[in-house]
Design a protein around this nucleic acid. Sequence first.
DNA 1: CTCAGTGCAAACCGTTTGCAGAACG
DNA 2: CGTTCTGCAAACGGTTTGCACTGAG
Lengths: 167, 167
Amino acid sequence: MPSDAPAVHPFVRLFGRYLREQGLPVTQQREAVADAVFATDEHLSVDDLERRLRQGGERIGKATIYRTLDLLVKSRLVQEHDFGEGFKRYEHRLSRQPDHDHLICLECGGVTEVKSPELRALQERVARETGFHPSRHKLEIYGLCAPCQAAGATLAEEGLTCPIEAV
Amino acid sequence: MPSDAPAVHPFVRLFGRYLREQGLPVTQQREAVADAVFATDEHLSVDDLERRLRQGGERIGKATIYRTLDLLVKSRLVQEHDFGEGFKRYEHRLSRQPDHDHLICLECGGVTEVKSPELRALQERVARETGFHPSRHKLEIYGLCAPCQAAGATLAEEGLTCPIEAV
DNA sequence: CTCAGTGCAAACCGTTTGCAGAACG
DNA sequence: CGTTCTGCAAACGGTTTGCACTGAG
C-alpha cells in the first residue's frame, strides 16, 4: 500500500551498486523492475513483469522494462532466455545453482532446471579438438515432463514415414 | 540457364514423396526452395534463400519460402535453428552427421558443427533422476573460434566488478 | 475444372527508438 | 540546473495472413 515503499529485495542493492559504478542514476523504476525480477525464481516474460509491477501498484512503461532488463543483463545479475516461444524470458542468477540447464516440456511449457556437470568435460574436449574457446553454453532438452506423461500426453509425429537415415 | 530445369538435387524427390503422402501438390516453387536448402550444408536464413533463388533465376515470394520451410520442417528433412540473431536459420538433415550441436563464434558469427555423444548419457541420467522424457535437445556453445582467437579477438566483460558468487 | 498454392501487401507482435516532460545527482 | 530517464506512441523487422489470381492434378 505505501506508494513510495523502497524496493525490498536485498539483491536490488547489488543492482544499485552496479548502476552507481557505471555512473547511472538509480531510479525508482529501475529498482521496481529489479525487485520484480528478484522476487521470483520463475522465468518471466516482459508481459509477466509488467503485469506483476502493475499488481504491485507500479505503473511502468514497457520501454522502461526493456531498458532496465538490458542493464540487468549487462550487470550479469540476470540472464536472458529464448525458449522458442517468440519472446524472451528473464531469470535472475542469485540464490540458486549457477549455470544450470533447462528441461522444457512440449506439452505444458513448464521449465525445470538441472545441473549438467558433464558439460564441462564436453567443452574441454571440444576445445582440445577444435581450438574453439568456449565462453558460455546453452543446453535445452525438450520433451515431456513427468506430470504430463502421467496425464497421458504423447508427442505427435508427422515426418516422413520412411526414416531419413535409410536414405 | 534453362528456365524450367527440374529441381536437380536428388533429395528433392524425398520432399516430393512427403508432399504426395500428405496429399499436397508438388509445385515448382516448393521444389525450388527445397533444392536451394539441399544444395548447401550452411545454415541459411530466409533472406539467404531468397537471394540464392533469385540468383538462380527463380522469383519466389518470401511468404512461399516461409510456407515451404514449414513443410520441410514438418517432414523432418530440415531443421530450424535460432542462434539469437533475431531471425531463424535452416539446415537440412541429410548427408551429414545427424543430431549434431553447434559452436557459435561471438566475434565472427561463424557456426561449427560438433558431435556430442556424451549428451546421450546425460539425457538418460536426467530422465532417470527427474522422470522427464527427452525428445530432442539443443546445445549451443558460444565463444571464440580458433581463427578469431588467432586474430587477437577477446570477449568484453562488463558485469559487476565483484563476482556474484561472492554474495 | 476445382481446389490448393502463390505473390503481393497489409497485418502482427515483440522489441526498439524519438521526443517532450519528469527525476536523479 | 544539466544530464539522464521515463512514458507514450510511432517505427522496426522478421514472420504471418488475407485475398485475388495462377497452376497442379
